[in-house]
Nucleic acid binder design. Structure first.
Length: 272
DNA sequence: ATCTATGCCTGGTGGC
DNA sequence: TGCCACCAGGCATAGA
């Protein structure tokens, strides 16, 4: 499940490998991934050259001069670069033929991912991107910003940290880790979180995302290797996936519960 | 306005 | 071994 650290890793690999390549053809094996006009997507992009690959939170931006593909991997989206002669694998839905004999292939077992074509100058005005908040390790993220966004909310802090319009890039794994590091129970309501605790969330969140980005992200429940997403941060996880194991800080047994419909791991001794 | 429920999806798993 | 209900969950959208 790619979160901001994983998306940055994919971005880097794609950028190193794709800038300068021209798209010679596009074919759909399942076109539900494309959420903008499917024919226009092909017509505009064929013949264009990739000029940059960027990201904002979990969104990838594959830029081709005046147009950009906005790509969200959701749960299981992955990109591969492989020779055009190679046989298609199951779940490879979108195929971009490149001018060097290779393909960029988008694979997504559960088909949750999306691609949208936008004009590059309009990226930050689109419905999807304009609403996004501040990235977790941005210097623009302050304790006051977080406090103002959550201090009158009756939602659990975990749900608030997963809200991309507040902080842009956290997913289920890192939110569990940030709340553990901040000694805050995921079920605490937004209106009970103090300014000092917001500072803790900011500081720990930034630290965790920076470290995870250095590690190339986290690889859990991964059954195939994927281009650029073989991260190693899983060895630093303290609570996520650690149900019934000992808390590395206090030795208490880590519990798994459900908060906002999501599997949630916590130490109820360390977190209050 | 704000919160809750549902749909999107497939593969893995546990129960029988 | 096979069948099946259920679970994983980011996000949009419909409904309350």
């Amino acid at each position: 499940m790619p979160e901001i650290a994983e998306v940055r890793t994919v971005r880097k690999v794609l950028k190193d490998r794709l800038v300068g390549r021209t798209i010679t053809n596009i074919s759909y094996r399942y076109d539900g991934i494309i959420k903008s006009d499917k024919e226009e997507f092909k017509n505009i992009l064929i013949g264009k050259t990739i000029t940059d690959v960027d990201n904002f939170g979990k969104w990838l931006f594959i830029k081709l001069d005046d147009y950009t593909i906005l790509s969200h991997l959701r749960m299981e989206g992955k990109y591969y670069i492989k020779p055009s002669t190679e046989e298609y694998e199951k779940h490879e839905h979108i195929i971009f033929n490149l001018d060097d004999g290779y393909d960029l292939r988008y694979k997504d077992v559960r088909k949750f991912g999306v691609m949208i074509l936008a004009k590059t100058k309009d990226i930050y005005n689109t419905l999807e991107i304009s609403k996004l908040g501040i990235e977790p390790d941005s210097k623009d993220l302050t304790k006051e910003y977080i406090y103002n966004k959550i201090h009158d909310s009756k939602l659990p802090i975990k749900e608030l940290l997963l809200d991309q319009s507040i902080i842009n890039g956290f997913g289920n794994i890192y939110v569990d880790e940030v709340l553990f590091a901040s000694h805050i129970l995921p079920t605490r309501l937004g209106n009970t979180i103090t300014l000092d605790e917001c500072e803790c969330i900011r500081k720990e969140g930034s630290k965790i995302i920076k470290k995870a980005t250095e590690c190339g992200g986290t690889t859990i429940r991964s059954y195939t290797s994927s281009l650029g997403v073989e991260g190693t941060y899983q060895k630093y996880l303290n609570v996520h996936t650690k149900v019934n194991q000992k808390c590395p800080v206090c030795g208490n047994i880590i519990k798994k519960t459900r908060v906002g419909g999501r599997g949630t791991y916590l130490c109820d001794n360390c977190q209050k």
